[in-house]
């Protein structure tokens, strides 16, 4: 049964209140290493949003028309990851053909994305929660935007923090984690904006 949730509410919740990165910790690896550089963060965020939206929708279709009718539930993880890898490959080729400029700013991040936990995570959440196609699309897009927002914000903060006089053992990863923690606390505040009738 499909839950009766407003797609816009899902979008809002996945960007702010339950940001895929800040509350589910998905996509941390590339998040910490890439956020050192503001420009790359922006590029990666854009790429993640694009791939996440497309793969969530596509995995929804694959789930409904291939996995369930053929009883392949036990191979779900492999199928999802193959779909994601294939989409990343195709996007890389398309972007390379259409716009070499975009390829330089976006394309180099694409191979990183196949193993980004957030992409697979969103697909698995979508399947588990039984969303409709529209809900999945909004959820995927919202999670992507949320990830993008989080990495751009962190990169901007890190521009300043990296120059601050932080205790030596805490430099780099340590202080970054504390920064992310404070960001996560701020984002929790958005929960008050959702009304439960």
């Amino acid at each position: 049964m499909i839950p009766d949730l407003n797609p816009l509410l899902l979008f809002f919740a996945s960007v702010f209140t339950s940001n895929i990165l800040l509350s589910n910790f998905l996509g941390m690896c590339s998040f910490i290493s890439i956020s050192r550089d503001f420009k790359s963060s922006n590029g990666l965020g854009m790429a993640v949003t694009l791939v996440m939206t497309i793969t969530t929708v596509l995995n929804w279709i694959v789930e409904k028309y291939i996995i369930v009718p053929f009883g392949l539930e036990y191979l779900r993880y492999i199928i999802y990851i193959i779909v994601i890898a294939a989409i990343v490959q195709i996007l890389e080729m398309i972007i390379d053909r259409i716009s070499p400029n975009l390829y330089i700013s976006l394309g180099i991040f694409l191979p990183l994305i196949t193993v980004n936990c957030a992409i697979l995570g969103v697909a698995l959440f979508m399947q588990l929660r039984n969303y409709s196609l529209i809900q999945s699309a909004f959820f995927g897009f919202g999670s992507g935007i949320g990830w993008w927002l989080a990495i751009v914000l962190l990169a901007a903060i890190r521009l300043k923090v990296d120059k601050a006089p932080v205790p030596a053992p805490l430099k780099g990863v340590g202080i970054t984690l504390i920064t992310i923690g404070i960001m996560a606390m701020a984002f929790i505040g958005f929960a008050g904006m959702i009304n439960v009738q």
Binding site: M1, P3, D4, L5, A13, S18, F125, L128, R129, N130, Y131
Partner: peptide, 9 residues
């Protein structure tokens, strides 16, 4: 019963 949670049924 069956109803909406925050994320799903």
């Amino acid at each position: 019963f069956s109803g909406n949670g925050l994320w799903g049924l």
